[in-house]
């Protein structure tokens, strides 16, 4: 729905880091912005000049994840998977993790990492990517 041109000002920027898309979420996220982001990422994966090697969503700046945002994150990962791309959610805060678990959302399909560095090495990119100890396939 956002069309081809640049996304509106209120939206979340999606940076290309080599063949990896890096999304940094921060502070308050309106529902509409989150939904927009979901479309935008699918669009970027589908139209990227080179095949996208992975999507990293940094949520270290996010103070709460409710079931709505949880669903959006899960759907971004599911959509990416359909487009043959892996998604890693990085930097979830302890309080957010405890709350999500209590809420009943363990998001089993989601691959997670402590921070963006770890996420990149999990995707086989970035420094110290020698041996990804946990390819997500072995779960």
């Amino acid at each position: 729905m956002s069309g081809l041109p640049a996304t509106p000002a209120s939206s979340v920027p999606v940076l290309a880091l080599g063949d990896v898309l890096l999304v940094t979420l921060q502070g308050e996220l309106h529902d509409a912005t989150a939904e927009q982001l979901q479309d935008h990422i699918s669009h970027r994966i589908a139209h990227h000049p080179v095949p996208v090697g992975g999507v990293v969503i940094d949520i270290s700046g996010v103070e709460i994840v409710d079931s709505f945002l949880g669903r959006i994150l899960a759907e971004i990962a599911a959509n990416a998977r359909l487009l043959a791309t892996r998604t890693v959610v990085a930097g979830m805060r302890p309080a957010v993790a405890i709350t999500l678990v209590e809420l009943g959302l363990t998001l089993p399909g989601l691959v997670t990492a402590l921070d963006v560095d770890r996420a990149l090495s999990l995707l086989g990119r970035g420094p110290g990517s020698a041996a990804p100890a946990h390819p997500e396939g072995d779960a």
Partner: peptide, 13 residues
């Protein structure tokens, strides 16, 4: 169980 699940969400095992 919850502790394990929360750690996993944060990217730890």
């Amino acid at each position: 169980m919850k502790t394990v699940a929360a750690a996993r969400l944060m990217g730890a095992e």
